[in-house]
Design a protein around this nucleic acid. Structure first.
Lengths: 221, 221
DNA sequence: TCGCGGATTGGACGGATGCGCAATATCGTC
DNA sequence: GACGATATTGCGCATCCGTCCAATCCGCGA
């Protein structure tokens, strides 16, 4: 394998780990898998990472924080809190075979036994909640929302979305993405004192930020 | 190991698998673990189960359906739909180190790759939703609840609870069991047209049906 | 052009994995 | 008491695991 600078190689390893984790699941991703995915030797992985736990945590972080920043960028770019909220639902609700959300399921399950994974998962969950809470506070400030407890409301909306999306990803046919969006936006409208349908309006279609491509992009810049 | 009838031995294997899965996680439970847990040989497990997938599915089913029937029994025994709903929240909300809910996390993550686990997980989730929907319909019928879509409302309440509980179990300190119950009951009150605090009243204390003991009970009748 | 340091290799290590099979032990039944 | 059925054993098989390390290769500065 051609030589690379320390940072580039780390990136390449993480990217390969993501590709494998998407295919086989976080818990079943092995050092050899990652090495053969990028056509190098297994020893190389341990030259850059202390343990497999760290590799998996980095892989999960790469995917999850990419989703978070992409969504966050779109949300802060929105002109009104209402528009930002619509962006949130559009980008967060998973598609049918959303490998990105499947990684979340893997991470939550692994969190109990892998400290590095738990730390990342917890931090990113907190950041999502903070992002949503910020939008709610902005909406309350400018009068579009009515909400007594922005922090709690953010947790409720986020968790409802997680719980419903989980059914879609884990079980497939139980409920669908459209149900997830419709039910969550409905709950959010009540949560924020919005009229019925204020959020529902045609935000269920197209242009997702996650799960669009079945394969992660190539590593490096 | 002393001889047992075909049914008893199957039960014993499943019980041992539960004990190991609680300790090590569903995904990391191996044939040898189960065998040594009950002091027998690994060949015995393969004599009773086609594959490890089936063993894990049976182990998960044992725990999860036990919770479901215990909770269901208490709910139908309740005198009013409101009381039944309180039982639901009290029994479903997980404690801090709830191994039973951790198994749900494991199952949801494994569902994508283990058909037998997926089938059980999906079925039990549907049964929980059906149980809750039945209570809501009963409450609507006798006038205590107001709800246009009992099925959707049941999914929302259940999923909100799952999403919040997930944070407690996977991340520990992010939010607590009290938050989970308070926020979910609050959402349920709005969902079912109940006055504030109708459900909250002191249902957060004591007497859980799940996660009470750190170890599963013995097999057999 | 040489040498050095770091990137990279590839396999050794002890142990674990699911699964399958021949051998054995122990029962109920005649 | 002997027999047949079957529950149970214990190990073999091929493959995999994470970790570790000596050897090798290569590019860059001198």
């Amino acid at each position: 394998m051609s030589r690379m600078s320390r940072g580039d190689r780390r990136d390449a390893i993480v990217a390969a780990a993501v590709a494998v984790a998407v295919r086989k699941g976080l818990a079943s991703t092995t050092v050899r898998d990652v090495a053969s995915e990028m056509g190098t030797s297994s020893g190389l992985i341990h030259h850059y990472f202390e343990s497999m736990d760290d590799v998996l945590a980095a892989a999960f972080k790469r995917v999850a924080s990419q989703d978070l920043t992409a969504s966050g960028r779109q949300m802060v770019a929105a002109e009104t809190p209402l528009a930002a909220l619509k962006v949130f639902f559009r980008t967060y609700a998973p598609a049918d075979k959303d490998w990105s959300f499947q990684l979340w399921l893997d991470a939550w399950a692994e969190a109990a036994r892998r400290p590095a994974v738990r730390a990342i998962s917890r931090q990113l969950n907190l950041e999502w909640q903070g992002l949503l809470e910020g939008v709610i506070r902005a909406g309350v400030a400018d009068g579009t929302f009515t909400c007594a407890e922005p922090a709690a409301a953010a947790w409720r909306i986020l968790s409802l979305l997680d719980g419903l999306a989980l059914q879609v990803i884990a079980h497939g046919t139980t409920i669908g993405r459209d149900d997830v969006i419709a039910w969550t936006t409905g709950a959010a409208e009540r949560e924020l004192g919005l009229p019925d349908g204020a959020l529902a309006a045609r935000c269920a279609r197209r242009g997702r930020a996650r799960g669009t491509s079945p394969r992660p992009g190539p590593p490096g810049a």
